[in-house]
Simulated scan of single mutants.
Amino acid sequence: MSLKILTVIGARPQFIKAATISRKVALTRNISEHIIHTGQHYDENMSGIFFDELDIPTPDVNLNIGSGLHGEQTAKMLIGIEQEIIKQKPSCVLVYGDTNSTLAGTLAATKLNTPVCHVEAGLRSFNRNMPEEMNRILTDHASDTLFAPTKNAVNQLRKEGVLSNNIILSGDVMFDAALYYSSKAEASSTIMESNHLTKNNYILATVHRAENTDNLERLTRIMSELKALAQHIKVVMPIHPRTLKFLSDCNISAQNILLLEPTGYLDMIKLERNSKLIITDSGGVQKEAFFHKKPCITLRTETEWVELVEAGHNVLFPPISDNTGSLTESVQSLTSNSQHSFSNSLYGDGHSAQLILSEINQRYG
Rank of each mutant, 00 (worst) to 15 (best):
L327R: 09
L334G: 08
N113R: 07
S143Y: 02
I85F: 10
E288D: 13
I222W: 06
G48Y: 04
I35A: 02
Q156S: 06
N45C: 07
T102M: 03
N62P: 07
N30G: 01
T38Q: 01
S253F: 07
L219N: 12
S224P: 01
V25S: 00
E217V: 13
I5Y: 00
K287S: 04
I222G: 12
I257F: 09
K76I: 12
S22D: 01
Q73N: 10
L355F: 08
N127C: 05
I297N: 08
E217D: 14
M46W: 04
L107W: 09
A108D: 01
A108Q: 03
V154N: 05
P59S: 05
P57T: 02
S275H: 13
L316C: 07
L138A: 04
N166L: 10
C250V: 00
H240V: 09
R136G: 00
Q40G: 02
L107Y: 04
L357T: 00
I49M: 11
L63G: 04
S326A: 09
H208D: 06
D172R: 09
I269A: 11
S188Q: 15
S182L: 14
V236D: 09
I257W: 06
K287L: 09
G284A: 06
K89H: 07
L258H: 07
E302R: 02
A178Y: 12
R128C: 01
R221L: 15
G66W: 05
I320Y: 10
R136F: 03
L94C: 03
L103N: 03
L219D: 10
I49R: 08
N200D: 14
K159P: 01
H292M: 15
I222V: 15
E288A: 11
A109R: 02
A109H: 05
L244S: 14
V309C: 08
H141M: 04
P318W: 13
I278G: 03
T145H: 10
E44Q: 13
S189N: 10
Q83R: 15
N113C: 11
Y96P: 00
T114C: 14
M223H: 06
N64Q: 15
I86W: 02
T99E: 02
T335N: 07
Y181E: 03
G264N: 10
I9A: 03
L112V: 06
F317R: 11
M174C: 11
N361C: 01
I278M: 14
S333I: 12
A205P: 02
F175T: 09
L63I: 06
Y265M: 04
I49H: 02
Q156I: 08
N323G: 10
K24E: 11
E133I: 05
R158H: 07
E304F: 05
Q156G: 02
T150F: 12
L299V: 12
Y42C: 13
G284V: 06
L316K: 06
E211I: 12
F317T: 05
T213R: 10
Q73W: 03
V331F: 05
D140Y: 01
N251K: 15
D176C: 11
M1H: 03
V154A: 05
E133D: 00
N215W: 06
E132N: 05
T139R: 03
S189F: 04
